[in-house]
Structures are given as C-alpha cells and as structure tokens.
Amino acid sequence: MAIEYREWREGDDLALLEIWGGPETAQARQFRSALAVSSDGGAGTSWRRCIVAEDVLDGVGIPVAAGVVYEASLHPERLWTYIEVARDHRRSGIGATLLTMLRREAGHAPSGVEKLRAKVEPGTPGAAFAEAFGLVPIQRSRLVVVEPGALKLPVFPDDGGAAGGENAGSDVVMDLATGSVELTDVVGRYYSSIHGWDSPGVLSVGQVQKLFLDELTGAHGAIVLRARPESAFGAGVKPTKKGRIRAFAVSYAAPADPDAAPGVPGTGAAGTENADGRETPTDVFVGHEPGLEPADAADAVRDILSLIAYQHPVMLELDDSMAALRAAVEPLLDSGKARLVGPETLVVAD
C-alpha cells in the first residue's frame, strides 16, 4: 500500500462515497458536506483546507480518506476539523498523518486560531482516535423526546389574582412572532450564556434571526412565559406593560429526522405518526432569560415545557451546559417519561 496526499479536487466526494458507503454516525452525515475545495476565505466563504489520501497502485490513485479544517463564523475560538478513513484502511497511520497535516495548515489560518474541535459519538472509532490525539470532551449533547403529559401543568392566577380563574395565565403565557425583537434578544443572550465553554462571540440581531428564528430554519411559532406584570402605581392599578420574558419555546415546522445531527433545528408536525406508531415529536428550542436566578430559571423552564408537552411529544437538544433544562428533563429520563433519541454527541477539543 502506497499512500499519497494531495489537496481536494472536484469529484473527490463521489469517489470517496463509493469507498466509504453510507455514513456511520450522525457526525459523518453532518460533516461530510464540509469536505470541499480549499479556500482562502472572503466573499462570504470561510478559510478551509481539505486534504485527500490516495492509495496508489500502478500509478493510479484511489481516494480512501480525507480530512478538513476550517474557520467558523459562529464559535470562532476554535477551528472545526473532520477526518474520515475507509474501513479497510484504518489503523494504518492515515488518519494520524492527515491530522498532523491539518494541524500544520491550521497554523496559517487568517484568524490566528489554531485550536481544533470536532464532534464524535462515545464508543466509536472516531472517539477513540480523538482521545488518542489529545482531543478531550468539552461538552455532551443529547437529543431527548419528552412524552405528552410528562410534567404537571402549572396553576396560574388570573388577572384578578385568583388561582385557576377563567383568565388564568393570559397575562403571563403568550404567543410571540418569531420576528419579535424582544424574543430575538433573549434567544441570543441565552445561546451565548450556555456556550461559555465555546464562545459564539458577539451575536447580532441578524445572526440570531438567521440561526434560530428565520423561516429558512423552519421556525414556526413561539410562546413565552412572562413575569407577572406590575403597575408602577400600586396593586390597584392595571399594569400598562407586559412582564419581561422568563422562558421561551420556539417550534420548527420541518419534518423531524431522529437521525439528524444534534444542534440543527427541524421539527415534526404534531399528530402524525412514525413507522413505530408513535406520534412524531415537534422539535423545539427551549430556553430562559439568562439573568434569572438558577431556581427561578429552572421553574420557568419546567413550566413552559409542561405547557408545550401537555398534549403532544416534543423533541429538544439537551446540552450539559443547559442547567435549567437539565433540571426539568433528567428526572423525566429517570422515570421513563422522556427518552433519548440516538446516541450522545461529544464536542472534543484541544
């Protein structure tokens, strides 16, 4: 076996697909699309270096492996990297050579960033490879389905202060347009607050809309849980302003794919069934005002989750950094009222 290395060329994707076959993991499905011709960036493209390994026989090279490293506009403190080697060429040093070459290329990234990150599934060859070369887990992500009625509905006072009245909750539970500036603000700050382990940088209103709330993401609707409105003129005077948002839930209209890589919004339509007879869960993004005290944040998230999962199942991404959401969901996993969909995902990094 004679292995030679070169830059990625047009058509390599088709040649490698013939050798690799279908993706072994959700990460392979997600990151194969990152394998592309190298770029110096600019004009809306990211800096990227992509290298192919060929098995050469009688002067003819057959692509058997590839690796890529590239800058990310979101989470710019590290470069993404991905390496895949054909099954029958593993444990022969190809992956190690590709990683060494990619690290060398990373030293020339325009941003000056050299640290790497990748996504792997525990117990896979990719996870073992990452561990062997010093990439350690910095975050765990799980895809969870919460079953209908898993959480008891909260009891809200009505406008007159009586618990469970005719108008109960009308001043604190509200629909909100996904284009709302108020919603965009809290979603962006929440996302930043739960990614201190891998900072997204400063998110603009446009970025938040594009990532989470734009029609192209499938964003279908949103409800918010507000603090009780208060009047500046005393308890006997009706408030003129709504209470601030405590928690939010954004739903997505595209069909859910249980095999999709975590972190990519997309939802199922409530009421339809999967092949196993279960109702297709709606994909939701649940979060809270990051300025809340931990106990208040946990209560707010639990309340809004109970509302959206009252009649239909919902699917959500659960990162270990999402403390309030974990407080609501992990007891449901323990009791069987929620279930994992697919394997865990680890973000590993230098």
Rank of each mutant, 00 (worst) to 15 (best):
V250P: 01
K238R: 15
K241L: 12
L225A: 05
G234H: 11
A256N: 08
R226G: 05
E230A: 11
A249E: 07
A261L: 00
G221C: 10
V250K: 04
T240F: 11
V250T: 07
A222V: 08
A253L: 01
A256L: 13
G243S: 06
P229E: 00
T240A: 15
I245G: 06
R228C: 06
I245S: 01
P239E: 02
Y252K: 06
H220M: 07
A247E: 10
V250N: 03
H220C: 09
P255N: 02
G236F: 11
A227M: 02
F248L: 05
P258V: 03
K242P: 00
K241A: 14
G234N: 09
A222Y: 12
F248S: 07
I245R: 07
D259M: 11
K241Q: 15
Y252I: 01
A254L: 08
I223K: 09
F248E: 07
A249I: 10
P229S: 08
F233W: 10
F233H: 11
A219I: 01
P255S: 07
R244M: 05
D257F: 02
R246S: 09
G221S: 15
I223V: 15
G221V: 10
P229L: 04
T240E: 15
A222G: 07
H220V: 00
A222K: 09
A261N: 03
G221K: 14
D259L: 13
I223N: 05
R244I: 01
A222P: 13
A227I: 00
F248P: 05
A232R: 11
A254G: 00
A254Q: 02
A232E: 10
A261C: 10
K238M: 10
E230G: 07
A247R: 12
P229K: 04
S231Q: 09
R246T: 04
A260S: 11
E230T: 14
A253R: 12
S231R: 04
F248G: 05
G236A: 14
K238A: 15
A253K: 03
A256K: 00
A256E: 05
R228P: 15
V224F: 04
G236C: 03
R228Q: 14
G236E: 14
G221L: 10
A249G: 06
A232Y: 00
V237I: 15
K242G: 00
R244V: 10
L225M: 08
